[in-house]
Design a protein around this nucleic acid. Structure first.
Lengths: 186, 186
DNA sequence: AGCTATTGTGCGTTATAACGCACGATGATA
DNA sequence: TATCATCGTGCGTTATAACGCACAATAGCT
């Protein structure tokens, strides 16, 4: 159970600090009787109390909350997926359009200095951009916005927009296109 | 105060899920009166209760514990801050759950030799995996499938599944979680 | 309009968190 | 040996978490 994780983590940490329950009680403002109960897993502290404890110890919550490591063993099985490429701006399909989910996903590669302009999609289409590698500029309402690797952008794709790589290195980005369910939704 | 952070995070998350207090009470096993108290910051939940809540929502603790992010309308520059599910896997939010699109997106990092097991999501949830860097193994129906960088996999996430990096280098992958429309599902 | 279902809040009751204090066990010192 | 200080645990008391239930407000349907 979860109380056991907190109990063990807290007891272990306090011991490694070399603090007695009394010292810990002084530093945290939580009674030593309660600290003892928590460490023995006899009581589940409120978040306010746990906050006082971590503040007194000057540690992040995660030190107390995270479970110990565990490894699993399993049988190894292999599966692969076919990918396709195209000209112009290079892209490949990550997930083809699914009528149930109403979205599709692509991976794009834009060479240095390349620009790709895209006319507006149908009304209600929303596009997500995830920059995987390099830097990408997105043009919306005649303004270019710079996204770095790891950054994302969600915008309405029912407007003209563009992609540009002004850097000296290639840009790789993924985009998810969300299509509205029906016109009646809007 | 700390209770306010939990209160706001919890209320915001529940609303973004589109769950009523009654639905959340069903899923979490915590009374709706108590959920309401927590969300209004009137009560500090015990760790056991908060654990039940996060288990019922199937979210990591950090979602509830971290100070909220600012969501810009047109441009979402997601924080690059790593969140920790446990010691095995770190993740960050690329796109938070959107009730309109009914999906959310995360970037994960799995260190060499690490495994992360995930219990089944609610009925009808579909998960997309995109391996960005390294090699990733996905466990489905007790079988591990190997995906290389650039490869993708879509599977039903309403089953127990797992992620594993058996290689000597880190693995980075993105996943998109698609949630079913509430009315159509129930 | 009336009726029903849903939603979030307040209240009284029960369970338990959190406390201060006492005490037995342990260790160090004279 | 005796004495003292420290340590962790148990106990009774108080405060509050957590609950089931009732209810007012709201929304949807006929």
């Amino acid at each position: 159970m979860f109380n056991t994780i907190i109990a063990n983590n807290l007891k272990q940490f306090r011991n490694s600090r070399g603090w007695s329950l009394a010292r810990a009680a002084d530093e945290t403002g939580v009674s030593k009787a309660m600290l003892g109960q928590i460490e023995r897993g006899e009581s589940s502290p409120t978040m306010a109390t746990l906050w006082k404890i971590t503040q007194g110890f000057q540690i992040p919550m995660s030190v107390v909350l995270e479970p110990p490591r565990d490894n699993s063993q399993s049988v190894e099985h292999q599966s692969k997926k076919q990918l396709s490429f195209d000209e112009n701006i290079q892209f490949r399909v990550l997930f083809a359009f699914d009528p149930l989910l109403r979205c599709e996903m692509f991976a794009h590669q834009l060479a240095p200095g390349k620009t790709h302009l895209s006319s507006s999609h149908e009304r209600g289409v929303i596009e997500d951009i995830i920059v995987i590698e390099g830097a990408l500029e997105i043009k919306l309402t005649d303004q270019w916005q710079l996204l770095q690797a790891g950054e994302t952008l969600r915008f309405k794709a029912d407007q003209d927009h563009g992609y540009r790589n002004s850097s000296a290195e290639r840009t790789i980005f993924h985009n998810v296109i969300h299509y509205p369910k029906t016109i009646a939704d809007h």
